[in-house]
Simulated assay, not measured.
Amino acid sequence: MTSFASDIQSLVQSADLSRRVFTMTSLIAGFALATQPVSAATITTDAEGLDAGEVQIPVKDGQVPAYRAKPKGGAPAPVILVVQEVFGVHEHIKDICRRLAKLGYYAVATELYARQGDASKVSDINQLISTIVSKVPDAQVLSDLDATAAFAATDGGDAARLGITGFCWGGRIVWLYAEHNPALKAGVVWYGKLVGQPTELQPKNPIDLVADLHAPVLGLYGGADPGIPADTVKQMETAAKAAGKTVEMVIYPDTPHAFNADYRPSYRQGPAQDGWKRMQAWFHAHGL
């Protein structure tokens, strides 16, 4: 093979690898297909007074898209990493970022499935989990969140005041990140799994690493969530306290999974509003 032909082949292979590695190079607009139809109770937060929109986060193997919202002007704001639901960074997660920015935070949600696929276009939840979500390595997610925090520090965020919150799939990640990053000040988990069957890509569950918690964590759970039994929530709380960690678990009676997802039938206004107030108080109490 000539040198020129070899160079062309290398370019083609490189381009093909790039397409495989980064399936998503920009965020979707609207809501994920698997969440349709969208509820009439959906909360929409405007961007008045905010600098809000898509950004690209430099990571070790390229760039991943993210949604960032922060107050316009002023001093560097405390950073809150917002970790997506199982459906990816769709409109609800963007709205969460705007809500946090209205409170004075630099809120950023990175598309953590960017290499594995576009979750927004999959209408069947089981297919979504098997074809995309199960293929996302925990190590990759934690690395991307570290990169997001580093980006925020260059973009108007105060990296010395770093918090994290996440929902559903992202709730589990909040636990893992609190067990990973010693610079974290506080975390708030919304119905994130605590135990489960480990896999090669997800080798540990939050309860396995509870002794490594670096930051106080508030857990918000539904008492009628079949996927996260209340006894596992209490088991995590007991293990954390035995390890000398600051953890508070709140279980809302007769409340389902995804009770903060105002765009879905699972939404429960009372627990959602109470959880939001508790989250704010938790962040304030721990330096955010």
Rank of each mutant, 00 (worst) to 15 (best):
D61P: 01
Q63H: 13
V64W: 02
V64P: 01
P65F: 11
A66T: 12
Y67K: 01
Y67E: 04
Y67I: 06
R68K: 09
R68S: 12
K70P: 09
P71N: 12
A75Q: 13
A75P: 08
A75D: 15
A77E: 00
A77G: 02
P78E: 03
V79Y: 06
V79P: 03
V82H: 09
V82A: 11
V83L: 10
V83M: 05
V86R: 10
V86L: 15
H90I: 06
H92R: 13
I93F: 11
K94W: 02
K94S: 03
D95H: 07
I96L: 09
C97Q: 08
C97D: 09
R99E: 14
R99Y: 11
L100I: 10
L100T: 13
K102W: 08
Y105M: 03
Y106E: 09
A107N: 11
V108A: 03
V108K: 04
V108S: 03
A109C: 07
T110A: 12
E111M: 10
L112I: 15
L112K: 08
L112H: 10
Y113I: 02
R115V: 06
G117P: 02
D118I: 14
A119T: 13
S120R: 00
D124Q: 10
N126L: 13
S130D: 15
I132T: 05
I132L: 01
I132Y: 00
V133S: 15
V133D: 09
V133Q: 12
S134H: 01
S134P: 03
K135Q: 15
V136I: 15
V136G: 04
A139W: 01
Q140M: 14
Q140V: 10
V141S: 08
L142I: 09
S143W: 01
D144M: 03
L145R: 07
L145Y: 05
D146Y: 06
A147W: 04
A150S: 14
F151E: 07
A152D: 11
